[in-house]
């Protein structure tokens, strides 16, 4: 039995390792605490120890045992903090700049995917928008996928269990997160923040292709876009957000 689902990203293993590291500390703390809790229940039961000792615990010589335990706890806390901080920075703070940009927009109740198109920017007119129900996002393997996360109506949460990443999407905000997939496959993108009646059915897929397959797939998409060639000003999927953004921009002037 695997504790975690299949890992498919470069940083996924770090999260798993972090779990086992914390588990080690927690297990030690748990065993010690259980001994400290259950041993006296046995040793100092009414039968074995009919007369209790008078210990107030206000003396330093008594309290030092609690202090040792607290210092141990504080130390393991900070070891955990130290160990995990690098992972946090890597996933949340140091978003790479090179890679493929995609837009993931939460709507009630699906994910809408945007490819950046030719200009390399998401949420522009030349985006290729995939918004038919349950059409997946194809991404290449071993490439930084920079995800711009948005929400159109309510708060959602992009959760990629196999990528070990998750982030809320909030109306009016754009969060830029990333992933680098190391395995070909089809992975779920679910919504982890309650978003209304059909929150339970909100799910889409990210398909990780080999580079050749991905290029083929994109070429087909571009061909389709060219043949349609309808000068759509902005894809319908980005309407509201685009308007909100432009409103803000106009207000700033």
């Amino acid at each position: 039995m695997n504790i975690f689902p299949e890992n498919a990203t470069t940083y996924g293993q770090e999260i798993d390792n972090l779990f086992y590291l914390i588990l080690t500390f927690v297990a030690i703390a748990f065993v010690i605490s259980v001994v400290v809790l259950f041993y006296p229940m046995f040793r100092y039961s009414e039968k074995r120890n009919p007369k209790a000792q008078y210990i107030t615990g206000e003396k330093k010589s008594h309290f030092k045992w609690v202090m040792y335990a607290l210092i141990m706890l504080a130390m393991s806390d900070f070891i955990i903090m130290y160990a995990e901080h690098g992972t946090w920075e890597k996933i949340e703070e140091d978003v790479p700049t090179d890679g493929i940009r995609v837009g993931i927009t939460g709507i009630q109740w699906n994910w809408v995917f945007n490819y950046a198109g030719k200009d390399g920017k998401v949420m522009t007119a030349d985006d290729i928008v995939i918004n038919e129900a349950n059409s997946e996002l194809h991404v290449p393997i071993n490439t930084n996928i920079i995800m711009e996360l948005r929400a159109r109506d309510v708060v959602h949460d992009v959760f990629l269990p196999n990528a070990r990443t998750k982030y809320d999407v909030i109306p009016g905000r754009t969060h830029v997160k990333w992933a680098n997939f190391t395995k070909v496959g089809k992975y779920e993108v679910v919504c982890s923040q309650i978003c209304g009646v059909l929150h339970s059915k909100m799910r889409n897929y990210i398909v990780v292709d080999t580079k050749e397959d991905y290029d083929k797939y994109m070429a087909a998409l571009y061909a389709k876009q060219d043949s349609a060639n309808a000068p759509k000003p902005a894809a319908p999927a980005i309407d509201t957000t685009a308007k909100a953004d432009s409103t803000k921009a106009a207000d700033k002037k």
Partner: peptide, 12 residues
Amino acid sequence: LAFMATLWGGSI
């Protein structure tokens, strides 16, 4: 921990 320490040396 203080609660647990109360148990030590008691007559439970």
